[in-house]
Simulated scan of single mutants.
Amino acid sequence: MKTNTLLASALLSFSGLLAGCDTSSPTPAAPAAPVSSSADVEATCTAQGWASQNGGTNGGGTATPTIVTTYDQLKAAITNSAVKVVQVNGTIIIPSGGRISFQDQTNKTLFGSAGAKLVSADQTQAGSGIIYVKRCSNIVIRNLVFEGPGAYDVDGWDNATIDACTRVWIDHCEFRDGVDGNLDFKNTADLITVSWTKFAYLKAPRPDGPGGSDDHRFSNLVGSSDTSTGDRGKLSITFARCWWAQGCVARMPRVRFGKVHVVNNLFGSSVSTSGVMAGLEANLLIQNNVFENMNRPIDLMANNATAVQATGNIFTNTTGNTAGNGKTAFTPPYTVSVLSASSVKATVTASTGAGATVGGNTCASSGI
């Protein structure tokens, strides 16, 4: 009996050790992952790239997360400025017209545990979209899949829009099948880093939309129009170690006005008509990326960009323009570790590479 007692005690102690282990280790997200009931408070890092400027970006830091598993819980936590860290567990369906307005807040993190998704099935103009982030500062969005119903040209909403925000870090997310776009930036949004994030369209585009495009798989818009001249001096964005995957047709990204650093990314959509697009007064540094099976990897459009500097890139089985416009782009005011282009594909497609692959609020595999 004494031996059995000791054995039971040992097993209980071992179970306690397991319960205290860090459940946010950077393992690939799995759709069938069990839903965690424990709060993940690991992340302590700050953003690199443009989001490192003017005080840096670390969101809600190590505040204890509010765990959400339903739409009502998610909306309540996002709209409550007293909640500083929101942890999404499992798949949450955004109801028709339920796009969440995340406005006028500071110092907040929204992240997903392994396999977490926010999903919208609405393709109407008014009811589409997942989240609209406006007039916020020091925001982190990490390890979440944003899944829309597919592209349909109804002048609808993106999966996510960043509007008039500063110091935003989007890290290890996946945006796919947005109605209008996957992830857009507008109205003086500034000091933003998008790292280790994947963009894709897995669903066929819906034709015959009133906007006129039968294939609106246009992923990322930076600057909403040529007349939005208030964007001059803003829209400073770093895209680093991201992946524009199959299904993306254009806007990877399409840039107006901004100083945008496109560094160490993978582009690989055989249905593309344009990759990086240089619009009015765009100032683009396109550095050490890989373009595969792309048409017009660098689109100079109307040749009215301020500067398009393309350096160190690899082009494989591409057609169309691969060069800049002969003008030198801005010099980034920050330092990042720039990989050789030959290392980019393996790095971006690794198990903890681009996408919602880190399984929680962890800084592991988030450096650039």
Rank of each mutant, 00 (worst) to 15 (best):
A250N: 07
C248W: 01
M277R: 11
L285Y: 14
N303L: 06
A310V: 15
V308S: 01
C248V: 13
L285K: 11
S228R: 15
N265T: 08
L284N: 14
L284D: 10
P253N: 00
V255L: 06
N265P: 01
C242W: 00
N293E: 15
C248F: 01
Q309K: 03
M277S: 14
I286H: 09
N295Q: 06
N304E: 09
D226Q: 12
A282G: 12
V271D: 05
V290F: 03
M277H: 10
R251P: 14
G320E: 12
N283Q: 03
T316E: 15
A282C: 11
E281I: 04
L284W: 08
D231E: 08
L266G: 14
H261F: 13
V260Y: 05
S274G: 12
G258D: 09
G223A: 10
K259I: 13
A282H: 11
G279K: 02
M252A: 12
S224N: 14
A282E: 07
T238G: 09
R254V: 09
G258W: 00
G223I: 03
L284V: 12
A307P: 02
S236F: 05
S270M: 10
P253L: 02
M252C: 14
N304A: 07
A250G: 09
V263K: 04
P253C: 04
S272W: 08
K259N: 15
L285N: 07
V260E: 12
D226W: 11
V276N: 07
I314R: 08
N303C: 09
T319D: 04
L266T: 13
R296Y: 14
R296S: 15
R256W: 02
S270Q: 06
V222S: 04
T227C: 01
G247D: 01
V262K: 07
P297Q: 00
A240F: 02
N264E: 02
W243E: 14
G268W: 08
N295F: 02
T319E: 01
D231N: 05
T273P: 00
S269H: 01
I298S: 11
G223Y: 00
L221C: 10
L284E: 07
I298H: 09
I237T: 00
N313S: 03
C242Q: 05
V263F: 03
G275T: 03
I298F: 07
E281G: 09
N304T: 14
R251Q: 15
N283C: 07
V249T: 14
F291R: 07
G320F: 06
N304L: 05
G247N: 01
A245Q: 06
N313R: 03
Q309E: 15
N304F: 03
L266V: 15
M252K: 12
Q287W: 15
P297N: 01
N289Y: 09
N304I: 06
N264L: 01
D299K: 04
A245E: 05
G230V: 06
M252T: 15
